[in-house]
Design a protein around this nucleic acid. Structure first.
Lengths: 344, 344
DNA sequence: ACACCAAATGTAAGCGCTTACATTTGCGAA
DNA sequence: TTCGCAAATGTAAGCGCTTACATTTGGTGT
């Protein structure tokens, strides 16, 4: 066959080259590399020298073909444009790398079809495991993953009864303290600016969480709008919300939306929290810094990424790791305060 | 040899299974897949049916071994925790995926040794190309990449004379308008809160750019501090800077640092821009929204990511793509204004 | 000094795919 | 109908590695 080396130069050294240089068989070289204690010190030394001399680099595809392991894990996330996912992925990659794995990353733009295609791509690539965000996934996607016997973990949600193990938090429960906080400050006209709920269990759970918490206090949502993630879009929706519904508080689906809402309030000249209180979700680093500080729900993104990686490594090694629930925490800062007096 | 299928179940279908099911040879199946016009319609149909029936999924490692192409490209970035890189990577991945490639991602934490290790990992994995941030890279890293004949592109910087092609912008020149803007507003005591410059050509170029621009006006930097990226760290450094040097304006190495500086000013009760003007670099989405709006330099991160991906694809296809310079733009918003009167 | 056995090494068969080269097929021209 | 040739298909040799299994080696006990 041809040796379509990247271009034309001298082909890279192979195990055989090393073996020849060291005066041993390829098996011995392979063993020296993978099972060092199976080979004598003296031999190992000669092999090491030969590797050095030939500038040998293992050929991964060959190894993968022979062992059926790629030491690669895939992650499919909605977008990297939301800093919170970026944080999670950053931690995920770091711990994965520490364990000898490499990250194959793709984004789905919150689109199930894209996610499915990406998953197929990863399966073809023979990833040893896959990480997905949330628990809303196409049945076909899950089926293929399971047919390929690929360990899977879903993050950003917690669902003990879900077929796939999860490492995440309870989006529904996380909203109770938010609502309680607002009610304690006298808010009764509470609106919500949620993320798009279709195909997004987290957004749905947050809405449901708010609804249920309000209901427990005999209240209900004054208004609900869904908005695509993005500051500008959120600001536009918030403007409409503020003008049309005059809520005393707005609970936002995430911090980005909350910042959009803050922007809108500022443009309209509405004081925050004097005229309207605003709550986010995620606790982005900037949310703490930006005066007066955004009241929000802290999500342990980095820790979640780390734990998800460890979870997958366990699965790959054959251990059955349990689903794991992480805590969230309401962080009260300057964007929430007493409800303005109602003109009623 | 063993068939260490992921677990124990029925092994995945191979080309041979499909061939048998379709009553043709493996070569024909392979051709039907890769060179459709080399096989008769009728045959193709039978093959398609057989693929369907056997639930065949191509085995990537095998293909990679045979063709010496992985259709995978690597990206090594300093961190995903800075939203601006996340944006760039997001666009990079999207366009790569559109072209049939998959992204292997790793972060280096601004550490050359880590970057080098990551690069080796990618070379082993046989990536078809690599994207790096900036032009400061270990000679050894570059050498290995080039020895493996891996196409490379450096982003976030522009350096026509650099050995590797770049798709980025001129960090040095980008600072001229910033300085001009400040000087035009009467600022003379200008300080800079830069990123860590060691091993970071962009941070260095930005500092040099400010210095040179000031010099052209007969001025010099009132103070220079370097700070690790992170809002809190930046805020601490900014606090010290404001207290000790009393600059009328602070130019920050990026928007995150600028937000830290804003935070510090706010805590100290210094009005912005009344008491001190603050300029960032990157133009994060939040920078526009956060009142009073951060004056900053807009970096075309998404476009850069897209172009870098296209650049690499061209290189992979054998075209020699030229380095490409992208424009930056000063965006004046509310954090800069006339210098406060100097008590001189 | 000798037999024995564990430790060390070698041999070679795959892993699933691509592709050069050989062979067969189908179809229009004669 | 037959020949010739292009189009379609088949055959089989790798790609670089791992690992059962076979063989050799070297140290131990007597």
């Amino acid at each position: 066959m041809r040796r379509r080396r990247k271009l034309d130069d001298d082909p890279a050294a192979t195990l055989e080259d090393v073996a020849r240089a060291a005066g041993v068989s390829v098996a011995t070289v392979s063993r020296a590399l993978n099972f060092p204690d199976l080979v004598r010190e003296a031999t190992k030394a000669r092999v090491a020298e030969a590797i050095e001399k030939t500038r040998y680099t293992p050929h991964f595809a060959a190894r993968a073909l022979a062992t059926n392991r790629t030491h690669t894990v895939g992650a499919i996330i909605p977008t990297l444009n939301n800093a919170i996912f970026a944080r999670g992925v950053n931690a995920f990659e770091e711990t994965l790398r520490g364990r000898g794995f490499t990250l194959l990353l793709s984004v789905s733009n919150y689109d199930a079809a894209t996610e499915h295609l990406n998953a197929l791509r990863m399966i073809e690539r023979g990833v040893d495991a896959v990480m997905l965000i949330g628990i809303d996934h196409g049945a076909e996607t899950l089926a293929r993953l399971s047919a390929a016997n690929t360990p899977l973990v879903c993050t950003w949600s917690h669902a003990p009864d879900h077929p796939a193990p999860t490492v995440g938090f309870d989006n529904h429960a996380a909203m109770a303290p938010v609502v309680a906080h607002l009610i304690a400050h006298g808010h009764r006209r509470i609106a919500m600016l949620a993320g798009i709920t279709e195909g997004n269990d987290r957004a749905r759970a947050r809405v449901a969480g708010v609804r249920d918490a309000l209901r427990q206090s005999g209240l209900s949502l004054a208004a609900l709008r869904e908005v695509r993630y993005g500051v500008e879009e959120a600001a536009a929706a918030a403007t409409a919300l503020l003008c049309e519904e005059a809520p005393t508080a707005i609970i936002c689906g995430n911090d980005v939306i909350a910042h959009g809402a803050l922007f809108a309030a500022h443009r309209l000249g509405h004081d925050v929290p004097g005229a309207v209180s605003i709550v986010g979700f995620d606790d982005l680093p900037l949310s703490a810094a930006m005066p007066p500080g955004l009241t929000t729900v802290r999500v342990p993104a980095a820790r979640m990424g780390r734990l998800a990686a460890e979870h997958l490594v366990s699965q790959i090694e054959g251990t059955i790791a349990p689903s794991r629930a992480l805590p969230t925490e309401l962080v009260v800062r300057g964007t929430t305060g007493p409800a303005r007096p109602q003109k009623a």
